[in-house]
Computed example of a mutant assay.
Amino acid sequence: MTDAEALRADRADWTAQHRATYLESGGAQGHVLDLSDVGGRSFTTHCLIRYTGRKSGQSYITPLIYGNAGGEIVVVASKGGADSHPAWYLNVLSQQTLGVQIATQAFEATWREPQGDERHQVWEYMCHLYPPYIAYQQSTSRRIPLVMLSPLRPIEPFSAPVR
């Protein structure tokens, strides 16, 4: 196994454990994590997004760092600076609404991608919340997408099974 493969495997295990902790606790744990050991902040907020696979039709739940910009939830499709978009982002593009859970509260939400000056301001804000995004953008030629979520209505908090 190469170093890159080992890192991806370790990250996948960490993500799966984070998602499981968030779900098993009903959102009481996993919302705030200390990411200072990887260049982030000691108080980094995370949400869960639930979406449908565009090919499989299955439901998936992914934990993501989020920010709040003008009452909208912002997530970043960074994939650690990889040259391809994360699968969750490609799946979100194929649907009009998705689920989002913040701590113990969940919502159905619409999404959009900010443009122009708004995008620049939101990107700067997200880089302040999680400074590694700067290096992620520098490591790839793709423009890392920002997704802004607007809650529509409350829904039940998420539960297993998850993928």
Score class of each variant (00 low, 15 high):
102 I>A: 00
106 A>R: 04
141 S>P: 03
72 E>P: 01
114 P>Q: 09
113 E>S: 13
146 L>Q: 05
124 E>K: 13
81 G>L: 06
116 G>C: 06
149 L>Q: 04
69 A>Y: 09
85 H>G: 00
120 H>W: 05
122 V>W: 03
116 G>M: 08
136 Y>M: 08
82 A>W: 05
59 S>G: 13
119 R>T: 01
108 E>W: 07
111 W>M: 07
61 I>K: 06
129 L>C: 15
122 V>I: 14
132 P>T: 07
74 V>F: 06
83 D>A: 15
79 K>V: 02
107 F>R: 04
138 Q>T: 11
72 E>G: 05
142 R>S: 12
59 S>D: 13
99 G>D: 10
61 I>R: 03
147 V>M: 12
93 L>V: 04
109 A>R: 04
69 A>V: 00
115 Q>N: 11
74 V>M: 11
124 E>L: 14
150 S>Y: 00
130 Y>N: 12
140 T>M: 05
96 Q>P: 11
123 W>D: 11
128 H>K: 15
78 S>D: 06
129 L>Q: 14
127 C>G: 04
145 P>C: 07
68 N>V: 01
147 V>W: 00
140 T>H: 00
136 Y>F: 15
133 Y>H: 10
126 M>F: 14
149 L>G: 05
103 A>V: 00
133 Y>M: 02
85 H>V: 01
107 F>T: 04
63 P>H: 14
105 Q>G: 01
70 G>W: 05
86 P>F: 08
80 G>T: 07
101 Q>G: 06
73 I>T: 10
110 T>L: 12
69 A>S: 02
124 E>W: 00
58 Q>F: 11
148 M>K: 01
148 M>I: 08
72 E>D: 15
76 V>K: 05
61 I>V: 14
76 V>D: 02
84 S>Y: 15
102 I>H: 02
99 G>H: 09
104 T>M: 10
71 G>W: 07
136 Y>T: 01
70 G>I: 10
127 C>T: 14
71 G>Q: 10
106 A>C: 09
113 E>F: 01
138 Q>W: 10
114 P>F: 03
125 Y>F: 15
119 R>W: 06
134 I>Q: 13
117 D>W: 05
101 Q>K: 11
70 G>N: 08
131 P>M: 10
108 E>H: 11
105 Q>C: 07
129 L>P: 05
72 E>A: 14
121 Q>M: 09
87 A>Y: 13
